[in-house]
Design a protein around this nucleic acid. Sequence first.
DNA 1: ATGGCTATTTATAACTC
DNA 2: TGAGTTATAAATAGCCA
Lengths: 125, 125
Amino acid sequence: MRRKIEIKLIEDKPKRHTTFTKRRQGLMKKTEQLCEISDSQAVVIAFSGTGNCYCLGHPHADTVLDRYFGESSSADEVERRIGDAMKSGRWVDAATGLELDELDELLAELEETTRRVEALAAESG
Amino acid sequence: MRRKIEIKLIEDKPKRHTTFTKRRQGLMKKTEQLCEISDSQAVVIAFSGTGNCYCLGHPHADTVLDRYFGESSSADEVERRIGDAMKSGRWVDAATGLELDELDELLAELEETTRRVEALAAESG
DNA sequence: ATGGCTATTTATAACTC
DNA sequence: TGAGTTATAAATAGCCA
């Protein structure tokens, strides 16, 4: 019944999504098992081709992500992250519902902070 | 030779670490396969019990993480992330090598930004 | 779309070097 | 400690309810 398959894009879309669902479930299960069995922490984030987001972390996704960002720090990395975050609209989305002038003010402050970090990184590099 | 095992903490430390290594490799492989076969994006981050960090993403870890944070935005989330980042020493580590007065100045700016975001979040909430 | 059901493939626990 | 080997457990591709 079952055949060996090659790991390459499944052309048939319904089948592709079924496979995504099954394998994603397997991946999440393996992740939990890894953490429980070996006293470790892990997070998995997966976006389906249709844009849905699935996330699992042990003990919590945020715990592992905070630890990751805490450890991978460097001046360049921080500068890049601030820049990317602003470009990606993360701060703008966050400020949804604010008055427009408040939003402008917030963005100006964040831009200034970015410049400041860039300048300091350049001096120290 | 092989026996069925229960998914609970392996008490023997060397054995535990061996299992961590093998299962982590399997998890990374599965993650890549999932992405290639189903047109999806995923990232796995794992910390061993000894504190080592292992990370894999498709197409890149940063790509998936930026997408994740972009989508999960909210005023509270941003406020929480900024606060956590400062507490975790992410900014301080990033600024290693800077003069002390430059560092103080940078931290003051970041603290001010945090307060500003908190204030705006409170007003809009 | 979901949730089983196997026949098979794949991952891996125990072992060895 | 790290890298194979092998027998067995676990995951899953193709089907079907």
